[in-house]
Design a protein around this nucleic acid. Sequence first.
DNA 1: CTGTTTACCTGGGGGC
DNA 2: TGCCCCCAGGTAAACA
Length: 272
Amino acid sequence: MPELPEVETIIRGLKQQILNLIIVDVKIYYKPMIKPSAIILRKTLVAASIINILRHGKYMFLSLSNQMTLVWHLRMTGQLLVVEKNKAIDKHTHIEIIFKDHDKKLIYRDIRKFGTCEIIKTSSIKEYIENHHLGQDSLEIDYNSFKSLIKKKKKPIKSILLDQTVLAGIGNIYADEILIRASVFPLKHGYKLKDNEIQAIFKEIKPTLQAAIIKKGTSFSDYINSIGQKGKFQLHLRAYQQQGKPCFRCKSIIKKIKVGGRGTYYCPNCQK
DNA sequence: CTGTTTACCTGGGGGC
DNA sequence: TGCCCCCAGGTAAACA
């Protein structure tokens, strides 16, 4: 499940590997993931190069040399990989991008086919973020806007952290990791949180995500970065998938519940 | 407007 | 061995 730290890790890898390489061919095997169409994607990419990559939350913006930008979202099992040009692809590979005079290619793999690739004008990236009602990036958000957003919401804080219109980038893993570090019960509603609890959550958001970026993300099931490596933050998880294990703080047994339909892990003693 | 539920997909695991 | 069912979760769309 690529969340902000995993997407950031992928972008850092891609920037080192494929920036400014001229694209000579694009092969598309699964068309429904592309907006507006596979034909337009091919036309847009051939003869162009990727000159910059930005991130907002879990969205990647790959800007091209021709004033166009690919908005790529990996959803749950998407992978952007740089592999040897002659490497055989498997049935989960949906796009191949071939570069001029280069022994590597960029491929898109996605077991569950939820990922999307959308072509927009580079000048309308801001507009795209607004139209999709994305909140501030989780590494950028300031305390006052965070606090006022949380106070308005009549739903569990866990669901609020997952809401990309509130703040962008947090998914199921890091929502639980932030809440156990902040000692806040995931089912407690936003408007019922005390200032010191909102402060405690805010204080954990950026350091938790930054720590995960340093470890190159969490690899629980499918996530690997652009050179096929797993992350290492799964070795530092305190809540996610830790049911039955002792809490890092008080040694109580971590419990698993459902919040808004999502598996949620927490310490029944520290998070009340 | 708000918040909740469902659809989109596939693979893995449990029950039998 | 194999079939059925459920589960995993990010987002958009449908719904209440």
